[in-house]
Amino acid sequence: MLTSIVELERAANVLKLLGDKTRLTIVAILKQRECCVCEFQEVFEMSQPSISQHLRKLKDAGMVKEERRGQWIYYSLNQKSELYELVDTILEHVPDQTEKIKMIEKSNPTLRCGC
């Protein structure tokens, strides 16, 4: 059960952003593990700029945070956000992303891109 109440407009924005299958999948993966853009490229058949655009929207909304390590940026869910409980509740109703995470780990794209 949600213990914090999110402003209606912010809640609507979260629902709108997560209404996109790619962004919903990204957030579901990030619930289980942090990732860099090149790792998401293994899961989605789209360009690095397209994935970065999705991540930027999630970050701008406060759902995702980034951590720079050298020249690479790793993304994770922002558990300190007031939106986290709402996002977490939504993710309870989304399939587990273990298979996609196994795809990432099997191909190990970080070796190729240098993350």
Results as ranks from 00 to 15, higher is better:
40 F>E: 05
1 M>D: 06
16 K>E: 15
34 E>C: 07
82 E>N: 14
111 L>G: 15
75 Y>G: 00
111 L>W: 15
94 V>A: 06
57 K>E: 08
99 E>H: 07
103 M>S: 12
15 L>N: 09
39 E>R: 03
36 C>S: 14
114 G>C: 11
76 S>E: 10
115 C>H: 06
83 L>H: 01
55 L>Y: 02
58 L>N: 00
62 G>H: 01
97 Q>T: 09
91 L>P: 06
3 T>P: 01
20 D>L: 12
35 C>I: 13
108 N>R: 10
14 V>L: 10
2 L>V: 12
66 E>Y: 00
104 I>C: 07
3 T>W: 11
33 R>N: 07
71 Q>M: 00
45 E>S: 14
60 D>Q: 08
4 S>I: 15
67 E>I: 15
102 K>H: 12
95 P>V: 00
67 E>P: 03
85 E>A: 13
90 I>K: 01
19 G>Y: 12
113 C>A: 08
74 Y>G: 07
23 R>V: 02
112 R>M: 04
69 R>D: 10
18 L>D: 03
94 V>Y: 03
89 T>M: 12
36 C>R: 00
66 E>A: 11
26 I>L: 14
40 F>I: 11
22 T>P: 02
103 M>A: 08
101 I>Q: 00
59 K>S: 09
90 I>F: 08
44 F>Q: 10
112 R>F: 07
21 K>F: 13
106 K>I: 11
86 L>F: 04
47 S>M: 13
100 K>D: 12
57 K>P: 05
99 E>K: 10
10 R>F: 09
72 W>Y: 09
83 L>D: 07
10 R>G: 06
30 L>S: 03
102 K>N: 13
87 V>C: 06
35 C>G: 04
54 H>A: 03
2 L>C: 03
51 I>E: 04
83 L>E: 06
109 P>E: 04
76 S>C: 12
7 E>A: 15
87 V>N: 05
75 Y>P: 00
75 Y>D: 04
97 Q>A: 04
1 M>T: 08
19 G>C: 08
114 G>T: 13
50 S>D: 10
5 I>Q: 14
75 Y>W: 02
60 D>A: 03
76 S>N: 09
105 E>F: 04
57 K>F: 09
6 V>C: 05
9 E>Q: 15
105 E>P: 07
24 L>M: 14
45 E>F: 07
114 G>D: 13
37 V>E: 03
92 E>G: 09
104 I>K: 02
7 E>T: 15
96 D>K: 02
13 N>K: 14
70 G>P: 02
41 Q>L: 10
79 Q>W: 01
52 S>F: 05
30 L>D: 04
15 L>T: 12
112 R>N: 08
22 T>E: 14
61 A>L: 11
70 G>R: 01
106 K>T: 14
33 R>K: 05
11 A>E: 15
83 L>W: 01
8 L>G: 10
71 Q>G: 00
86 L>Q: 01
67 E>A: 15
68 R>A: 12
55 L>I: 05
21 K>L: 10
101 I>N: 07
36 C>Y: 03
33 R>L: 04
29 I>W: 01
31 K>H: 13
27 V>A: 11
91 L>M: 08
100 K>T: 00
